[in-house]
Computed example of a mutant assay.
Amino acid sequence: MWALLAAVAGLLLAVPSRGSSAEEYEYYSWQSDHLQPGRFYAKQPQCVDIPSDLRLCHSIGYRKMRLPNLLEHDTLPEIKHQASSWVPLLAKQCHPDTQIFLCSLFAPICLDRPIYPCRSLCQAVRDGCSPVMGSFGFPWPDMLRCDRFPLDNDLCVSLQSPGSTVTQPPVSKVCPPCDNEMKADIILEHFCASEFALRMKIKEIKREKGDRKIISQRRKKVLKMGPLRKKDLKKLVLFIKHGASCPCSQLDHPNSSFLIMGRRWDNQFLLTVIHKWDKKNKDLRLALKMMKTNQCPTYHHIFQ
């Protein structure tokens, strides 16, 4: 990725030299930063090799990252877990600088001060990718809110593809979890991309702060447990983010049984897919059979 290599080289030139390359920094002082004044880090940051299984950033163009990273993840297992959710987004090619933006936060280059993405880089990636994320039921997260990042006149990772545009398909007005074809391969694709999957009935539907809140009945059939615990299943509450007003034909008939899929996001369980459970439907029957025998593809194939 030549654009990123050029960006890294530019950063190295911009930061006062200490006679060493970025990869030779092993430890350095870092007590606070300009974005969150007065924040102190319990662990002294260090340089570590980017793990080969950190797939989001392993081919980024530099070999070492700072730990803790700029999202306050302080262990590699935590970083790998959080970053894995973003790998499918790269395959959608919603903006050419998506990887640069994400890796500047998840696996920042090792320098003697934190180098954040510029606000314009965040805005460009957000504008290109948030419609794609929305179509799969994911909101743009608060931790990536663009006003958290410095303006371009500060030292920061800048936009590498200015003026580039990506043609997006028209965004449906239907709530994204409710707008999926009942085709076996599509159902299986979403099953693999989701963290949990259930057969369940709905007890109650509410609207809360712009979201739609779905409260399940007690009895459920678990197809994929993921992050759910037994106590979560007893009183499971799901959310469609920003879904208070968008149409969802499935929720017009809440007494039916549903195939529900979702993910955990910021201490909530998000509904990402909902289908009416119709065992007469050949595609649903085939998908359920494939769920038992099929090995899910790796992340970068899921959204293709």
Score class of each variant (00 low, 15 high):
Gly128Asn: 00
Tyr41Ala: 10
Asp152Ile: 13
Pro51Phe: 02
Ser194Asn: 00
Met133Arg: 14
Asp152Ser: 13
Ala124Leu: 02
Asp97Tyr: 04
Asp185Cys: 00
Arg219Val: 09
Leu4Tyr: 12
Cys47Phe: 06
Tyr28Gln: 12
Pro114Gln: 13
Asn255His: 02
Pro77Glu: 13
Phe239Asp: 00
Trp2Ile: 15
Ala9His: 10
Leu236Cys: 15
Asp74Ala: 11
Lys213Asn: 09
Thr167Leu: 15
Lys92Asp: 10
Lys92Ile: 06
Asn180Glu: 08
Leu35Asp: 09
Asp97Thr: 08
Ser256Gly: 09
Leu288Gln: 11
Lys282Gln: 08
Val222His: 07
Ala6Val: 01
Gln46Ser: 11
Gln99Trp: 06
Ser85Trp: 09
Lys92Gln: 15
Ala91Leu: 03
Lys279Trp: 13
Ile79Arg: 03
Pro176Cys: 04
Pro170Ser: 11
Lys235Asp: 01
His301Cys: 04
Thr98Arg: 01
Ser135Asp: 01
Ala9Arg: 09
Ile115Gln: 09
Tyr116Asn: 05
Arg126Ile: 03
Leu56Trp: 06
Tyr62Ser: 01
Ile109Arg: 01
Asp211Leu: 08
Arg199Gln: 14
Glu26Tyr: 04
Gly134His: 03
Lys230Pro: 12
Ile60Glu: 07
Pro114His: 11
Leu223Lys: 14
Ile274Ser: 05
Leu159Arg: 00
Cys57Pro: 03
Cys156Glu: 01
Ile50Asn: 11
Arg119Met: 14
Tyr116Met: 08
Ser20Thr: 07
Pro297Tyr: 08
Leu228Ile: 05
His253Gly: 01
Arg113Gln: 13
Ala244Ser: 15
Cys192Pro: 04
Cys246Arg: 05
Gly61Arg: 00
Arg229Met: 08
Met290Cys: 02
Leu271Thr: 00
Glu72Leu: 14
Ile60Ser: 01
Gly243Phe: 00
Cys146His: 11
Asp49Ile: 08
Val8His: 00
Val237Gln: 11
Asp154Leu: 13
Gly137His: 00
Trp265Leu: 12
Pro37Lys: 06
Ala107Trp: 03
Met290Ile: 02
Lys289Leu: 11
Leu198Asp: 05
Leu198Phe: 08
Ser249Tyr: 14
Ile109Asn: 02
Ala9Trp: 09
Gly137Asn: 03
Pro227Lys: 12
Phe239Ser: 06
Thr75Ser: 15
Ile205Gly: 07
Val15Ile: 15
Trp30Phe: 14
Ala91Trp: 06
Ser257Asn: 15
Trp277Leu: 15
Ser172Thr: 04
Ala9Glu: 13
Pro141Lys: 12
Leu35Tyr: 14
Leu102Pro: 06
Met225Pro: 02
Val125Tyr: 00
Leu286Phe: 02
Cys122Lys: 04
Leu56Arg: 01
Val222Tyr: 07
Ser256Trp: 05
